[in-house]
Computed example of a mutant assay.
Amino acid sequence: MNRVLTAMLGIATAGVLAACGSGPAGQSGDAAGGEQITMGFSQVGAESGWRTANTTSIQDAAKEAGVDLKFSDANGKQENQISAIRSFIQQRVDVIAFSPVVRTGWDAVLLEAKNAGIPVILTDRAVDTSEPDVYKTFIGADFVQEGQWAGDWVVKEFAAAPGPVNIVQLEGTTGSDPALERTSGFAKAIGVNPNLKVIASQTGDFTRSGGKQVMEAFLKAHPDIDVVFAQNDDMGLGAVEAIEAAGKKPGTDIKIVAIDATHDGMQATADGKFNFLVECNPLLGPQLMDIAKKVVAGESVPNRIVTPDQTFDQAQAAAALPERKY
């Protein structure tokens, strides 16, 4: 009888230990053992074609990688993202990833995730934080470089202009990482030629309707616009609608340079309505899942992972369109 009781006690103890798992706080036993991990992901919203492609890439990659994805759409509001991240912490997910709506205001919630032992990965957009080691890595494009490429094209295109070149800028969401850094990169690039002047700059919030509305106002206030710098394709496409409605020809009467290189933007470039296009690749899903598995396993990863981009003129866009994935 004593031997039977001892055996039963050993089995029960083993069961308790197995249920506790051996990973750090916030990490399930299965995840620590290399099995399925659970990821909480908070997306900015669905404000553009780029964002839709990015969401699809993440969801498809999670299925392919066997990652249990808990997805939340913030609808463009930081408070929604903070609530979602706190919910992920309460659910004890293995890893949290998010694309921040804006750059600042994340210290408290990131510290909460750190204290819970849940690693955080930033995708597409960076944050400013005074707290050390509150995220493992940032995967995304070099937004400053994108702005510089756009500005470099304007410098080259108008190198022989005899007088002032009037530029209007359609900015992204106020306070967001891409809006801040694309503005900075563009300004630095065109600064080499004093003839290049940004005469008006306003946010279109990365939406097509916003781009159209702002461009309509620009055309009324400034009848002599030479160039539009749109910080994403959707705002640029909205500007095309406004320019055409005003009786002018986009790409000819007013040059347009945009960033993203989604299918619609590539088509506009191939059609000559955009003059130059800078890519920002949204297909980050497979890379995110690979990095997430490494982070959960405790492997070291680079603290900054830059996704490669390229640029397109009209001929290059036309050639790339047939096989474009987004």
Rank of each mutant, 00 (worst) to 15 (best):
N166E: 03
I167A: 02
I167T: 03
I167S: 10
V168C: 00
Q169E: 09
Q169W: 01
Q169V: 00
L170T: 06
L170K: 03
E171Y: 07
E171A: 07
E171R: 10
E171K: 12
T173D: 12
T173M: 11
T174V: 14
T174E: 15
G175W: 00
G175F: 08
S176H: 13
S176R: 10
S176K: 13
S176A: 13
S176Y: 12
S176P: 13
D177R: 07
D177Y: 13
D177K: 11
P178T: 02
A179Q: 15
A179P: 02
A179G: 07
A179E: 13
A179S: 14
A179D: 12
L180Q: 01
E181K: 13
E181C: 12
E181L: 11
R182T: 03
T183Q: 10
T183W: 05
S184I: 09
S184M: 11
S184C: 11
G185V: 02
F186G: 07
F186Q: 06
F186R: 05
A187Y: 00
A187G: 10
A187V: 04
K188H: 14
K188Y: 09
A189H: 04
A189W: 03
A189G: 09
A189T: 11
A189D: 06
I190S: 11
I190M: 03
I190D: 00
G191P: 00
G191E: 05
V192W: 11
V192L: 15
N193D: 15
P194L: 13
P194E: 06
P194Q: 01
P194K: 08
N195R: 15
N195V: 13
N195Q: 12
N195W: 06
K197Y: 00
K197P: 00
K197E: 01
V198D: 06
I199W: 08
Q202D: 09
Q202W: 07
T203R: 10
T203K: 09
T203S: 14
T203Q: 15
G204F: 01
G204H: 07
G204Y: 01
